[in-house]
Write a protein that binds this DNA or RNA. Structure first.
Lengths: 196, 196
DNA sequence: CCTACCGATCGGTAGG
DNA sequence: CCTACCGATCGGTAGG
C-alpha cells in the first residue's frame, strides 16, 4: 500500500524538484498547487505521487539541498590558508554567484523554509544557525588578528549575508551593470567597511 | 447589497489590520486564513466583513501604509541641509528603527506584496522603484561631490537596503547586543565602505 | 455581531 | 501514467 520511491527515479524526481522551485519562487509555497506543478510538467496531479511522497517533501528537498551546498563550500573556503579577509571575500563571491546562478532554489530556501514541518523546520534552523556561527567565528578571528576593525561580529555577518541575499531584487538585464561590476562593487563595499 | 465601509470604523479596522499584519508575518499571507484572523480578534469570520471588504484589502492596507511612511520620511530627510553622507546615515538609521519598531507591517510589506492583485501590484512596484531611485540619486550626488567614492549607485543602494531588511532575522533579546551598538555598527559598516 | 451555508479549490488516495 | 473521487478547508454571502 505504501509507496516505495526507488532512488532510480532520481532523475525524474530532480526535474520535479527543479520545477517546484521555480513555481514556489514565483507563487510562494502555499499558493502554489500541485495541479499547477503537474501542468508545468505536462502530467495530471496524481501522477506526481509516483515520484514524490508529498508537497512538503519537495520543499524539504529544495531547502536541504541548497543548505548543504552552502555548508560544503564555506567549509572548503574556511580550511584554506588565505587571510581572513581573503576568505571572507571568497565567501561573499560564492554567495553572490549562488544567488545569480541558482536563483530559484536559493530563493525558496531563503523565503519558504518557514513552511517546513517538524522535525525539518528545527533541523533547517539549526543548520542555518551553525552556518552563520562559522562565519561569525571567522570574523572574530579577523578581529583578533587585527585584520578587521573591532565591531560586533553578529552585526557584521547579518549585514553581509543580508546584503547578498538582496540580490533577489537584482534586475538581470536592466541597468547594464555587468556581473563583474556587481560582484566587485558589492565585495568592496562590504569589505572596505570592515577592514582596518 | 454592496457593503459600505464608513471611515468611522477606522479604529476597529485599524485593529484588524494590525492583527492581520502579525498573522501574515508569522504564517504568510496565503497560509493565513480569515478564520484564524477572526479568532485572534475574538469573533467569527463573517463578522470581519462588516469592517473590511476582503482579505486582499488588508494586504493592500499594510503594504501601502508602510510604503507611504518610508516615502514621507525619506523625502523629509532628503530636503534637509546636511551633507549627502549625513542624509544617508539618517536614512539608514530610519530604516533600522522601522524594522525594529514596526516589525510586523514592514515584514509583510517586504515579503507578501507579491500577493497583491492588480492594479495594486503595479502601483506598489512603481512606488518602490521610485523610492529606490531617490536614494540612488542621493548616492550619485555624493559621488559627484566627492563625498562618496565612485561605484555603481544601483549596487550600493541594493547593498544598503538589503542589509537593513535583513534585520528581520535579528534575535532581539539574545546575544546581548544593544540597539545602539547594532545601529552604530551597521551604519559604520555600510558607510565606511562607501566614503572617500 | 451571529448561524447557516455555498461553490471552489486544495492535497492526496483508490484502482487500474 | 490516467480517471474518478474524497474529506477538509478556503473566502465570502444571505439573512437576521
Amino acid at each position: 500500500m505504501a509507496k516505495i520511491i526507488t532512488q532510480k527515479n532520481g532523475t525524474r524526481k530532480d526535474v520535479i524538484i527543479q520545477k517546484a522551485a521555480a513555481l514556489y519562487k514565483s507563487k510562494s509555497y502555499t499558493a502554489a498547487s500541485m495541479r499547477e506543478l503537474a501542468e508545468s510538467l505536462g502530467v495530471e496531479a496524481p501522477s506526481l505521487y509516483n515520484h514524490i511522497g508529498s508537497k512538503g517533501e519537495l520543499l524539504e528537498a529544495i531547502c536541504f539541498r541548497t543548505g548543504n551546498r552552502f555548508i560544503d563550500q564555506v567549509r572548503l573556503i574556511s580550511e584554506g590558508e588565505e587571510s581572513i579577509v581573503q576568505k571572507l571575500e571568497a565567501i561573499i563571491r560564492f554567495h553572490i554567484r549562488m544567488m545569480l546562478e541558482n536563483f530559484d532554489e536559493v530563493f525558496v530556501a531563503n523565503h519558504e523554509w518557514k513552511h517546513l514541518q517538524e522535525p525539518f523546520l528545527s533541523d533547517f534552523l539549526n543548520i542555518r544557525r551553525t552556518y552563520e556561527k562559522s562565519i561569525i567565528d571567522l570574523i572574530q578571528q579577523g578581529i583578533d588578528r587585527g585584520e578587521i576593525k573591532p565591531l560586533n561580529p553578529y552585526v557584521a555577518v547579518l549585514t553581509i549575508l543580508s546584503a547578498v541575499r538582496g540580490l533577489e531584487f537584482w534586475q538581470r538585464n536592466k541597468k547594464n551593470v555587468s556581473q563583474q561590476v556587481l560582484e566587485n562593487d558589492m565585495v568592496n563595499h562590504l569589505l572596505n567597511g570592515l577592514t582596518t
